[in-house]
Amino acid sequence: MTMPGEQVREAYRAHSGELFGFACRSLGDRDRAEEAVQECFLKAWRSRASYDPERGSERTWLFAILRNVIADLGRSDGRRPAGAPLEESADRIPSTDQPFERAMLAWQVEEALRRIGERHRQIVVETCLRGRPYAEVAAALGIPEGTIKSRVYYGLRAMRDAMEELGYES
């Protein structure tokens, strides 16, 4: 099981933006986020021979590495970003029972919501995230309440499918 070098480079092009965004959120600093992403891909490059696609997607693998890098950065600063556990294995697939894993899952949900269409995202955000009544949202947008209900349905479906694309397994 291995990941060819070209695939690691391609993974940078495919995932660096999302990894950087998560690092920015976790570290609160662009320079340190770039440092974390650089270190993440250096570790990925070094350990590409141990990558096992049966254990998870390359995205999941990279996030697991990034999690450890951010934890190391927090440790060297004397603090732990989002309660990060300090795992030794770079390619361990994360569980979701730790605060840091919850933060990563939340980031995944955000990414899924970014990927669905604006019309559906708007309705899901207003009703499911902000908890606004359907009648209020319908009046504000000038559309029937039944349309709000159907968009909640199609929006949740799209979000569920996006989560699956991102490697989430319920």
């Binding site: 660096s16 933006g17 999302e18 950087f20 965004g21 920015c24 662009r30 986020a33 770039e34 992403v37 919850r102 899952l105 939340a106 949900v109 955000e110 919501l113 970014r114 604006e118 995202r121 899901v124 955000v125 499911c128 995230l129 902000r130 349905y153 949740l156 479906r157 979000m159 569920r160 989560m163 319920s170």
Partner: peptide, 28 residues
């Protein structure tokens, strides 16, 4: 499956809801 998807939304901080329509910060 929709119930599980809906439950995940509670993980998201409502304060960042507006940013979901904005492009992600990009590395240099």
């Amino acid at each position: 499956s929709l119930r599980q998807a809906g439950a995940l939304i509670s993980l998201v901080d409502p304060a960042i809801a507006d940013s979901l329509s904005e492009p992600l910060p990009r590395p240099s």
